[in-house]
């Protein structure tokens, strides 16, 4: 999985936001905010990663159990897939 080209993750005033670039504003009409962990996952997905990679990153960064990490990752991936933000 990889984030599609044409989106930029930016930290604005302490918040993570995803901004569509150029022609992408036509299909992604809006702006998306991400939590700290969402931004971390996004950055990993910019370089291509599997769900297992994402879980691993979350477990490394946060003190949570594997099951919760898997659920959170699945939910995150499902949302950005629904928004057509990943290949």
């Amino acid at each position: 999985m990889k984030i599609r080209d044409g989106f930029m993750l930016r930290e604005i005033a302490g918040q993570w936001v995803v901004v569509p670039l150029g022609e992408k504003v036509v299909e992604f009409n809006g702006i998306m905010t991400l939590s700290q962990s969402g931004a971390l996952l996004w950055q990993v997905l910019e370089k291509n990663a599997s769900e297992e990679d994402l879980v691993e990153v979350i477990l490394k960064e946060y003190t949570i159990d594997k099951e919760t990490a898997e659920t959170d990752v699945r939910e995150f991936v499902s949302i950005i897939r629904e928004k057509n933000l990943i290949n």
Partner: peptide
């Protein structure tokens, strides 16, 4: 996770 421009706008502006 996703907000409309207007909703997010105020949050970002006051944060900045």
């Amino acid at each position: 996770m996703s907000l409309r421009w207007g909703e997010l706008y105020s949050q970002l502006i006051s944060g900045a």
